[in-house]
Each structure stands twice: as C-alpha cells, then as structure tokens.
Amino acid sequence: MTIDELFHSDPTRQLEEVQKVNARERAETDVREFYETDSAERVLTELGETIKTHPGEAARFLYIHATFGSGKTHLLKLVGLLADD
C-alpha cells in the first residue's frame, strides 16, 4: 500500500486556514471528508437524543471540549447543516 492510497482526497490540496461554522459553500466537501470517530459518533448520538427529548427548545448549555485541530468546528458545521440553522 502506498501513502497515496491512505487518503480519499489529495493530501496536498489547498485547505482553508480556518474552518467557519456557517460557511455553506464547501458543504459537499466537508461532508465527504468527515471522518466519524467514536467520540464524534457519541456527540451526534447524544445531540440527537437531546433534540428528540426536548423538541422545539432552544439549544442551551451544550458544548464540545477537545484539543486544537481535533475537528470540533468541522463537526459543528455538519451539525448546523443537518439542523439547517
């Protein structure tokens, strides 16, 4: 296996310096490149349960804690796209 075969996309492509949660112009690429980790799956599951349990309520007191560069903004961008908000 070569290193190129490890990547779904060209690893040398131009990347945004900063991800913006409300930027929709790259939505298709963001969805395609999202790598769901166990912790991301847990966050998405818990968020879904919260929404089902409290429909129509404003989302308050929810936060994601993780290290720099771990994909928090990427995850939140996808959640925003799904919630259309």
Rank of each mutant, 00 (worst) to 15 (best):
T2H: 15
I3R: 15
I3T: 06
D4W: 05
E5I: 03
E5K: 15
L6E: 12
L6Y: 11
F7T: 05
H8R: 10
S9L: 07
S9N: 14
S9Y: 05
S9E: 14
D10C: 09
T12E: 15
T12I: 06
T12W: 07
R13M: 10
R13D: 11
Q14N: 12
L15Y: 06
L15E: 06
E16V: 09
E16F: 01
E16Y: 04
E16S: 11
E17D: 14
V18H: 13
Q19G: 02
K20M: 11
K20Q: 02
K20D: 10
N22V: 11
R24E: 13
R24N: 07
R26G: 07
R26P: 00
R26V: 04
A27K: 04
E28H: 03
E28W: 12
T29K: 14
D30I: 00
V31G: 01
V31D: 01
R32E: 08
F34M: 06
F34V: 02
F34Q: 00
Y35E: 10
T37W: 15
S39T: 14
S39H: 13
A40F: 07
A40C: 08
E41Q: 10
E41D: 08
V43H: 03
V43D: 05
T45K: 08
T45Q: 13
E46T: 01
L47T: 04
L47P: 05
G48K: 02
T50M: 00
T50Q: 06
T50W: 13
I51F: 00
H54W: 14
H54G: 00
G56A: 01
E57W: 04
A58H: 06
A58N: 09
A58E: 14
A59R: 12
R60P: 04
F61Q: 06
F61I: 15
F61V: 12
F61G: 12
I64H: 00
I64S: 04
A66M: 06
A66C: 12
A66L: 04
A66G: 10
T67G: 09
F68Y: 06
F68M: 06
G69T: 02
G69E: 07
G71V: 02
G71R: 00
G71P: 00
G71E: 00
T73M: 03
H74T: 00
H74I: 11
L75F: 01
L75M: 06
L75P: 05
L76A: 08
L76D: 00
K77L: 02
L78K: 01
V79S: 05
V79I: 13
G80D: 05
G80I: 02
L81F: 08
L82R: 10
D85N: 10
